[in-house]
């Protein structure tokens, strides 16, 4: 029973069909408090589709997605709107960076605070004490998050002018601003150089340790995945083909054939 209570996200038999194509085929997955879980697999394995189902961008064809916010009732979130999912406490980043390009770096993070603040049109016009306090808090927290991801010097720059690695880190800061208990990272290291990847590695660990935030990530960089993950799920052609600790996965012949084999060719 105690094991049950610690699970933040439970996905059971999740299936997603696009017309005749089964992109995700009965995937069962869970993430517990304080864990870093990786979801790996070759390109087109259905990992991002899985994320999109879990975060409400797609409504899955079958299966259950259960979210257990700490200290609150658990809830089935299939088909819930993405903003509701985020408000419940599960935030994400995007594989193909989706920042608000023509807004400043700071404003990007401030958007993440939207669902944790409540200033209305009236409050904004009158600048009531409450709305001013909220605004100040939003700004301060956003600066803190930028500091954490090392983007503080670029706070007033436009998001589109950041380096590639900077944009990826801004995505993380923006998602963090929504105060998640579970963070979904979609290929956070894609396009980063080794130095940047190492920094990202420690950033993810730091997020987990500092805020007791669990992390579920999709990643192709095997070194990063093996370094930081507690558990790994492997997908191929929409199906789960393996699950275990990094050591187990490294030794799993199916995985080597499907994934790591491909990697060693390169």
């Amino acid at each position: 029973m105690t094991d049950q209570a610690e699970k933040l996200l439970e996905v059971r038999e999740l299936t997603m069909d696009f017309g005749g194509l089964r992109a995700v085929d009965s995937i069962t997955l869970d993430v517990s408090k304080g864990e870093i879980v990786a979801l790996i697999g070759p390109n087109g394995a259905g990992k991002t589709t899985f994320f999109n189902c879990v975060t409400g961008i797609y409504t899955p064809t079958r299966g259950d997605i259960i979210l257990n916010p700490p200290g609150e009732k658990s809830r089935r979130i299939n088909g819930l709107k993405p903003n509701r999912v985020t408000t419940l406490g599960m935030a994400r980043t995007f594989q193909n960076i989706r920042l608000f390009q023509n807004m400043t770096v700071l404003e990007n993070v401030m958007i993440g605070r939207h669902c944790r603040t409540s200033t209305s049109i009236i409050g904004a016009v009158l600048r009531t004490a409450r709305s001013r306090a909220q605004e100040r808090e939003t700004i301060d927290r956003s600066y803190d998050l930028l500091d954490q991801v090392g983007l503080l010097p670029f706070a007033d720059a436009f998001a589109k002018n950041l380096s590639y690695g900077g944009q990826r880190r801004l995505e993380i800061a923006r998602a963090m601003a929504t105060e998640p208990f579970l963070l979904l990272l979609d290929e956070p290291a894609a396009g980063m150089n080794p130095q940047e990847t190492r920094e990202l590695d420690s950033l993810i660990m730091q997020i987990r340790n500092a805020g007791e935030i669990a992390i579920l990530l999709i990643e192709h960089d095997m070194k990063l995945v093996m370094n930081i993950s507690d558990r790994i799920y492997v997908m191929e052609y929409g199906k789960k083909i393996a699950h275990g600790t990094p050591q187990q996965i490294r030794a799993n012949p199916k995985v080597i054939e499907a994934y790591l084999g491909e990697e060693s060719d390169a």
Partner: peptide
Amino acid sequence: RIGRAWMALREDEIACVAMG
């Protein structure tokens, strides 16, 4: 907060919704 949400909507609807 509201004005920023409008701009975020203009910039990227999906990301905006995903940010709550």
